[in-house]
Amino acid sequence: MSGGPDGVLVLGEALIDLVPVPGEPEILRVQPGGAPANVAVGLARLGMPVAFAGALGGDGFARAIERRLGDAGVDLTLCARSELPTAVAVADPGEKGTGYHFHLQDTATFRLPERTAEAGRYDAVYVGGLAAVVEPAAPAVALTAQAAARHSLLVVDPNVRQDRTIEGGRSLGLLRELCELAHVVKASDEDLLRLWPDTDPDETSRRLAAGGRLVVMTRGAGGAMAYTPAGPPVSVPAVPVQVVNTIGAGDAFMAGALTWLGTSGGWDRGLSPDRAASMLEFAAQVAASVVTQTGTEPTAPAHA
């Protein structure tokens, strides 16, 4: 595939994160988020044409989300609208990362339509996040992913979330199905261990790649690895920075990897080791631009 004017279609949720203010844990800062929305904004900030196919509500939170997406240059033509409120995720940062407690029921956020007819217009279609497992969005995500697997490049980030509001067994099954359907899988080592708990993440990545996929596994401070359909895995270290915030780092990495694939990689999943390393290094730099600040807006590496 070659890069085209339609770029990337991102399907999923845009919601509000409530994030504790450092030093004042009882004060929560409103921050537009949602993994797919973060990826869409990241792609746009990095210069990639991108459309967001989510759903926006009728409250002030939705207006803030729309401003963020629009200001970044994201195409909202395929975004559904509703008068229902916006979903909220209460962030719970800890030593092992950030957990979330979700308020999802009866919100506009997950009332998104399937986009099977549009999937083939885009070079790549990204799905993942909560929308892949939360009703009523999950069937729309699955149908769109199936169309993208036939007509485009399907990119999946399982982004496994654990919370009382999410049905664990069913959600893991849906995410496993999406990973098996995908052409490109980006996941953390923790995601892979939750999805396939009896298998080492490295072995899972090798198995997925052997099926013709490009698999990118992030390992936090341990860097990232790429597994291609042919050839040995490639590893790059994390960029050494002073970490201020980890929220959105994985989404920024995803946006960086997709941008590199679309601009330098020709959407090719059969990368040579050198090219796979270049992709990982670019994505790691983009992720580093997020963890050094309090927000989730990435910037392109200075040398890119």
Rank of each mutant, 00 (worst) to 15 (best):
E297C: 11
V216D: 04
E13D: 14
S205N: 05
V74C: 06
Y100A: 00
T77W: 06
V39G: 07
R164W: 13
P49C: 13
F61H: 00
L192D: 08
N245H: 13
A44F: 09
Q162P: 00
T204S: 15
T263G: 03
V216N: 03
V10R: 11
L78N: 08
M1N: 10
A276D: 00
D59Q: 07
A148T: 05
V134N: 07
G57P: 09
A145Q: 02
P36E: 11
C79H: 00
G4Q: 11
A147N: 12
S289D: 07
P240H: 07
G12T: 06
G4K: 04
M225H: 13
P158T: 09
A230P: 00
L172N: 14
V215A: 08
D92N: 09
I16D: 01
V286L: 05
A53Q: 05
G169F: 03
A221S: 15
G262W: 12
A288E: 05
A148M: 06
P85F: 09
A37F: 01
V215R: 06
R115P: 00
V10Y: 11
G94T: 08
T86P: 08
G169I: 05
L195K: 11
D106N: 15
G94M: 07
S289I: 01
P5L: 14
T199A: 14
A209D: 04
A221P: 07
H183N: 10
A288F: 10
V244I: 15
A300E: 09
A64L: 15
R121D: 14
N159I: 06
L214I: 02
G262H: 14
F61D: 00
A145V: 08
T296V: 13
T116E: 12
R206K: 14
G57M: 10
L15R: 09
A249G: 06
A132I: 07
L271K: 03
P25E: 03
Q31S: 12
C179Q: 03
N38G: 04
L28A: 08
M1R: 14
V127S: 11
S188G: 15
T246Y: 09
P93H: 07
R161P: 02
P158K: 09
S205M: 04
G173T: 10
P22M: 09
C179V: 01
A147E: 13
V50L: 07
L192I: 04
V234K: 06
R45P: 04
P22S: 07
G47A: 09
L69N: 01
A138C: 10
K186H: 04
M225R: 15
V134T: 13
D191C: 11
V19K: 01
A149C: 10
G3T: 11
F61I: 00
A108H: 09
M254I: 03
D163I: 01
L258R: 02
T299W: 14
